[in-house]
Design a binder for these strands. Sequence first.
DNA 1: AAAAGTCTGTTGGATTTGCAACGAACGGAG
DNA 2: CTCCGTTCGTTGCAAATCCAACAGACTTTT
Lengths: 222, 222
Amino acid sequence: MEISPLAAASPLFRKIPAEDLPPLLRRMDARERQYQKGELLLHRGARTEHLGLVLSGAVHIVREDFWGNRAIVGLAGPGDVFAETYALSGEPLEVSVLAAADVAVLFLEVERTAFGKAGAFQEQLKENLLSLLAGKNLQLTRKIRHMAQRTTREKLLSYLSAQALLAGSPAFDIPLDRQQLADFLAVDRSAMSAALGKLRDEGILEFRKNHFRLLRPTEQGD
Amino acid sequence: MEISPLAAASPLFRKIPAEDLPPLLRRMDARERQYQKGELLLHRGARTEHLGLVLSGAVHIVREDFWGNRAIVGLAGPGDVFAETYALSGEPLEVSVLAAADVAVLFLEVERTAFGKAGAFQEQLKENLLSLLAGKNLQLTRKIRHMAQRTTREKLLSYLSAQALLAGSPAFDIPLDRQQLADFLAVDRSAMSAALGKLRDEGILEFRKNHFRLLRPTEQGD
DNA sequence: AAAAGTCTGTTGGATTTGCAACGAACGGAG
DNA sequence: CTCCGTTCGTTGCAAATCCAACAGACTTTT
């Protein structure tokens, strides 16, 4: 098996020497899969013992009711891991995972491997998983922070200023189109579009397509 | 040091023999603290190397801007653990923790202990922390699911049916008063009160104080 | 028992959102 | 170049919201 350099560089394998990867991947029952944009990788209700590692492209973690209302719970791009919570807990998925673009992912069995008899990798693997889960927790908490804002305008500012902070620059690109951003913030797309326009008119924001620039430091209340 | 039976029974110490606890707790720099209702246990911006284990009472994980808008991000009751994400990641807290009632908590150093040289407990402790974090992740995901509903009414039904499922009964108590529930769901209290009344009028719901009963199986869309 | 404080439901009006529809702009594919 | 599908902003109206204020029920304190 050839090992993607991206996989080797993933936080999942931090501090694990490259030469140890092949046996570890074998032990983790590594399977690479390709999907086209829009395809479903994992569907709600299923169980999985494998977590997913995005090699290229991006996936969306979504929750949709059967009237088509779609909520984007999370995003995973190259190097990111998804479904690790369900792989570890054994619970059935409460979300679906779909390809936001053409995507290649590596599925890795994790519970048996990490919880198996102590071996060379188990300890480091467990620590890496802990960091991963802690980071995921922070992500979710931040998303809740955006969603907890009362108006569409405030949700937008909360999200956009977080992105600016993340990018380390007032100008940045976001990985979502308008509909996806609306689904992510749980707001109406047209209302959001209007709110964006108003923010631009007020000179707080510039944007074109997926590129945004915050013009004032938007002293976010918190 | 005397060990609370509740602490010993915590998922944090699952599969760790009772006789091994005293040295482990010592190593974790265990400190018991008491707080009165309303007191702040940890404030946003601080760093902590200790996670908290609730012995009695309850704490709320909150995020508030300085106009007093308060969002309840999470709850922790007896046996529950909080701030573990920040203790593990070393990041400054993005939330505050306050006593929802008179409360006793045990603070435990975790990163050095769990990540230290492999010892008798480290491995089990790491696994327990993994389960804990995975569970916390599921909690946050579910909360996002409630918050992603568009109307107050739908948020309520989403939350209440989840509680009923959790309780294994259509009748159940919730650990939040109205204002707290509103803060938890990120809605207006008065609007929520109105929505509750309407649900009752429609025969979908009964409630008195913190006791609720779902009368119809409320086929939640998802 | 009275007073003070808390919690909950209710009301009314200004504001915001949800929803459906439409048209302009853009980017391939033929 | 033209056609076609997608994305994005805009509009109009019904519905839901936010916010402030108030009243009754209940608790706790004095």
